[in-house]
Amino acid sequence: MADYNIQEMVQKNKNNKRTKIVEKSIPIILFLITCISILTTIGILYTLISETFIFFTRVSFIDFITDTEWNAFSSDPSWGIISLIMGTLKIVVIAILVAIPIGLGAAIYLSEYATDRTRRTIKPILEILAGIPTVVYGTFAITFVTPLIRGIFPEVNLYNAISPGVVVGIMIVPMIASLSEDAMSSVPNTTREGSLGLGATRLETVFKVIIPAAASGIISSFVLGISRAIGETMIVSIAAGSTPNASLDIRESLQTMTGFIVQVTSGDASYGTDLYYSLYAVGMTLFLFTLVMNMISQWITRRFKEEY
């Protein structure tokens, strides 16, 4: 029945030029594509460093890090980044105070107590929550959370640290919950059973066995959460106000680093002004903060990698 010889046809195809060229060029093309990610990093560093450098030829670096006032729009501006950093820190501290207990609690429940069905219902809800745009969270903060807080504590300003802080916290709950849950679920069942088999309760097992075993994953989820909170932009732009100050009062209006960048760029910062270059100095500071956080998180994951 064979009116063909396969090996012969295969031999003929062996010297097919197209196949050979494709085979040789694909890895090169893919490598070039991969280099875009490196170019992106180089682009970010180049952008931030070169423009920040110009900024510091005009404004003293010492003033930048020691001055406690940030007054960029005045005719006699002052550039004390501490005010903006303090704004960011207030938001971050409130956010993690909300996010860590709730996120970890949810992770414990999902990993150790929930039935499979509950887990399958709750996890998509957390995913939806993680996918809500920050501009929506910002609107929620200003139209719902702020009036709620002001209803209880009337002395709180319309723009304050509490409302955006809490909402940023809620925004990062899904991330902390899901990363911590992953870490706890990957503790092997034999370890869990070893503790439960001795008559320990679920709770004791969680705190004495599971959490210590999953510590590095849990802590790195906290660090990543902090990094997200530092870089969060829209919620604070909408609900935190635009008055930079270094005070610790969380009832007052404030401005974060990200909030400043949005405020300047949504007006017109004419190219070449001090104000324009200050964007990059603030962006650079912000970038360094998040970079350090990400590196800490990676270091924790690598350094304390659980071996099961």
């Binding site: 990093t41 970010i44 931030l48 990543l224 990094s227 870089g231 912000l286 998040t290």
Partner: peptide, 17 residues
């Protein structure tokens, strides 16, 4: 490592880029 660091860069910094 570079890609996982890029994942942590705030979106507003991408805006500056």
């Amino acid at each position: 490592i570079n890609i996982s660091n890029l994942a942590g860069v705030p979106s507003v910094v991408f805006g500056l880029l």
